[in-house]
Amino acid sequence: MAILIVLSLFVILAAIVAVEAKDLLSTVISIGAAGLMLSVIFLMLGAPDLAITQVVVEVLCLVLLIRTAILREDTTFEARRDRFIVAAGLVGAGLLVAVAYAALQAMVGFGNPLMAADPESLTLANQYLNHGLEKTGAANYVMAVLLDFRAYDTLGEATVIFCSIIGVYAVIRKVGKTTT
């Protein structure tokens, strides 16, 4: 628990550095540090699938962002930013945290989810855990949920990625454009 809180604080610190850094290279490297700590948190919370995925996706994200950010000349402007906008943003973020704090008091505590009370109950997670192995044959329950029980999610996800890549091609390519 204490290690988890320290790692979460590191994620928050890396996020703040990424937002407030003057240099775009520092920004991109800080977001990489935040993602790496997030993958360590996933590993601690019992999700090795997510930890591997987070590391690999983080590397690819970093390559894309460095490709965008570093090769361009940064004409920065933060000196003349509007103070009112910054104050409004800080107030909004603080309001979000306050409302979240008030709402979290009604939640069950960390480490005691609803499925833990009775392993034979009819909650979704317990049903998947009880019958996942004999119904799908997959020993990895995350894959059983992802590709068998809730495969519609995966189909929709494949559609979303397909659309985004089509969007990248449509935005980037030059064929058929006549104006210069």
Binding site: I5, E78, V97
Partner: peptide
């Protein structure tokens, strides 16, 4: 409930960056 609150602070930092920053990156 402290870990949940820390996760919400991460969300708040991201929201601040989206609303207030002027650089596209």
């Amino acid at each position: 409930t402290l870990p949940f609150l820390l996760a919400m602070i991460v969300v708040a930092v991201g929201l601040y960056a989206v609303v207030c920053k002027k650089n596209l990156i």
